[in-house]
């Protein structure tokens, strides 16, 4: 018996290690090729660079206005996610605690919007934004807040359903007003799902390309992904400028990977919690 167990274990570890290498290989490729010239990338794409030349990273960072666009993307993401978290938790709470037909219909409405593909609203939305003078960064934040609502409301709704009313009722009897009730009683209990909401929304907002493209276009203040897109568009009429793309992509994903590695445990817990509690 023990030898069979060991054999099984070894097989499992081998499989896992092979798959891990496979999973990481594109990232490894990205790192290796961010230090090579176009000709070198073409001729020896899988080799280590002959010299670890930082000039491509630096020029890529300049091309995509790294500091500025990073900062802008960060602000947009943080503000949007904050708004989404607060508003969707409040809305979900209201709908769970107040079991009227109206709240049921509203809940269905919020959730069914998850099915609406972006294309269906894209063109009229931009037109509306133009009329309301929202084709700028504040407008972008408002739009992200709107789009993030569906999933977040859904997640909060499921989670809050499992929180007993008794705690809140006790607080009400003790004379708490609505703000204290929400902020000091309910919200701390929502920590696990809040983390999920923050992580999921941050990820798609940080990486999003189409909405900033339509709203900001080629304005002087672009998000990181948008800078990447325009840098590629402008520097190559035909063919792909790999020596620009690779370092630019590397530099734009390093922040996320770093944050992820630091907060891994929370990520994993958050994702799993969100998944099952529905």
């Amino acid at each position: 018996m023990p030898s069979k167990n060991n054999f099984g274990k070894i097989v499992r570890y081998i499989v896992l290690i092979i798959m891990s290498l496979y999973t990481l290989s594109p990232l490894a490729l990205l790192i290796l090729n961010s230090f090579k010239s176009q000709v070198e990338i073409d001729s020896s794409p899988t080799n280590f660079p002959t010299t670890w030349n930082f000039k491509y990273l630096i020029s890529a960072m300049k091309q995509i206005n790294f500091l500025q666009s990073f900062f802008i993307t960060l602000i947009i993401t943080i503000i949007s996610v904050t708004i989404i978290t607060l508003i969707s938790s409040m809305a979900a709470w209201a709908m769970v605690r107040c079991k009227t037909k109206l709240s049921f219909v509203l809940f269905l409405m919020f959730v069914s919007a998850m099915l609406i593909p972006f294309q269906s609203v894209m063109f009229p939305l931009i037109h509306l934004a133009d009329i309301l003078n929202l084709k700028n960064i504040p407008g972008l934040i408002i739009m992200y807040s709107g789009f993030g609502l569906s999933l977040s409301v859904f997640l909060y709704h499921g989670f809050i359903k499992s929180i007993p009313k008794s705690i809140e009722e006790a607080a009400i009897i003790d004379g708490a007003n609505i703000f204290q009730l929400f902020w000091h009683i309910l919200f701390p209990l929502l920590k696990p799902i809040t983390i999920t909401v923050i992580i999921l929304n941050s990820m798609w907002i940080w990486n999003d390309y189409l909405l900033p493209f339509l709203v900001l276009g080629n304005s002087s203040t672009k998000t990181l992904t948008l800078e990447l897109y325009f840098a590629k568009m402008q520097s190559s009429q035909f063919g792909s400028p790999w020596e620009l793309i690779f370092p630019a992509v590397l530099v734009s994903i390093i922040p996320i990977i770093v944050i992820f590695l630091l907060l891994q445990k929370h990520f994993v817990k958050g994702i799993s919690a969100g998944a099952i509690k529905e």
């Binding site: 508003i87 809305a91 509203l106 919020f110 609406i116 609203v121 509306l128 709107g146 609502l149 569906s150």
Partner: peptide, 20 residues
Amino acid sequence: LIGLAFILFLTVILIPFVVG
């Protein structure tokens, strides 16, 4: 509680969808 969410939702998703 639900007001802000509803207005945001209306402006960003519902109205464009119906107009679309």
